[in-house]
Nucleic acid binder design. Sequence first.
DNA 1: CACACTTACGATATTCGTAAGGATT
DNA 2: AATCCTTACGAATATCGTAAGTGTG
Lengths: 298, 298
Amino acid sequence: MTVKQLRAFLAVAQTLSFTQACEHLHLSQPALSLAIKGLEESLGGRLLIRTTRSVRLTPEGESLLPLAKRLLADWDNTEEVMRQRFTLQLGRVALAAMPSFACNQLPSALMAFRRRHPRIKVTVHDVINEQVIDMVRRQRVELGIAFEPAASEGLAFTPLFVDRFVAVVPADSPLAEATTLRWAELLRYDFITLQRPSMVRLLLEHELAAQGIELPVAFESHQLVTVGRMVASGLGVSAVPALCRRQMHELGGRCVTLTEPVIARPVGVLSPAGQELSVAAQALQEVLAATLAPSATP
Amino acid sequence: MTVKQLRAFLAVAQTLSFTQACEHLHLSQPALSLAIKGLEESLGGRLLIRTTRSVRLTPEGESLLPLAKRLLADWDNTEEVMRQRFTLQLGRVALAAMPSFACNQLPSALMAFRRRHPRIKVTVHDVINEQVIDMVRRQRVELGIAFEPAASEGLAFTPLFVDRFVAVVPADSPLAEATTLRWAELLRYDFITLQRPSMVRLLLEHELAAQGIELPVAFESHQLVTVGRMVASGLGVSAVPALCRRQMHELGGRCVTLTEPVIARPVGVLSPAGQELSVAAQALQEVLAATLAPSATP
DNA sequence: CACACTTACGATATTCGTAAGGATT
DNA sequence: AATCCTTACGAATATCGTAAGTGTG
């Protein structure tokens, strides 16, 4: 039994005419005749009664009709779904992004992606840097956006831009007027930062320690928003990835470029190393690269 | 997309090896390679990642796998069901039979049928003669067993045997000793018969009227069993198709051959005229003919 | 270098369309 | 006589297997 044969049967059964079925199938009458004959032989009995003037279904043909309908509908649907998947007319990508990126750069990137591929669904997992890496590793998501991981075994990292830490100070602070600040100047004030397991926190401590500087931590939070609010209300100062510049500004803080040392880390797209990406994920990665390439260091 | 291609994909996806899949499919490696290639081209993208040393599924291949499994399972199942239908390993026949036949000859005929085709289900509709004809006409059943209908437009009648009316008398009646009775002798007694819409009743009245005899009906019932019981308990006498002989005997009546006139009607199988019968129905008809042919007039 | 998949090519099968045949209205 | 399905046959197409090619571990 072949797909062609079954399709031929369905066409004849629905029109009850070989001639009409022919047009529907773009096939000559003899070819159709042979197809039906072949189907009947392969199944071991007659499906259609052909008197020269009329075509009817045998009881067995009658019982095959609904089965054939369902089978061919499923068949065509499967074919269509796969084609759509490949042409990006259908699909789903799961993406994990660290919060700072997820709530700053990501929305506009997703807008661009959706404009180009409106039928692709995107699932965003807004999780901390470490979990992003973990989710990509465990194949819970196809793509991740995070700082470049130290140990990248099994992971491919495609840098998007370099993110540099900037100072956040209260709007009414004298520091807010400076165009650039040295870490030493910033750290004269109470320092507010994220709690310990955070990548940002560890990174800061590590880089500053290398310069012989210790963080004078006054307050800790585990939410960047809270840190922003605390700075804005005058509790102290902080340093955050430049990614969060706009967000900090909206919360009422002022951002100032930091030097000595310049602390910066590449941010990029993580994907499973040897693993093939779905067409949809490839497209998303491209859009991410395209929308973020021009602005090297935000 | 063809069945072969999908089957090839499934085999490779499950074994993750072209070589192993080949054996499973009884196909050479190049042919398999071509099949996969063809499938990928028809769907518009890659399904398998072939490094020379390993085979993996792309995300799209991963998404096709369950669809392919279901599709092929349905396909094979449909093919199998149809083959079984044609080889009488599976199927269902609906049969209508008049009660006198249904409860006398039919059980043994069905036994014979079941012995020969144990997997064919039979639905028996035990309905009165007129409804048998009606159900065959409306195609509610494929076969009917009834007296030969007068107007048989659209129906094919295949006679099985001729059924002759016999007298039923109480066991202690003097008539029970006779080897044969004339109608005139029988009708000296109170007559018990079925109620009016019954074919048997109408037939009797019609045939006797032709001889100038009128039925002296004393009691009426619409169940043959009741008639039998009434006779057995001495209320009167009756006449029933010879088919019911054994049943009447079991109820306590005695059956005696009737003459002057001999009232007889062919009993046979009814089927839709031009209509094709299912293979299962044909087989049932054959068994009916075979089991009832030897005993011409029971 | 050995294994596993791909490409090349000739042989075989299948399928298709044109033409002729048969049966019914 | 016209219509509709089937059979016959030659041509085009597809598919298969053998043999050679290519890249990886």
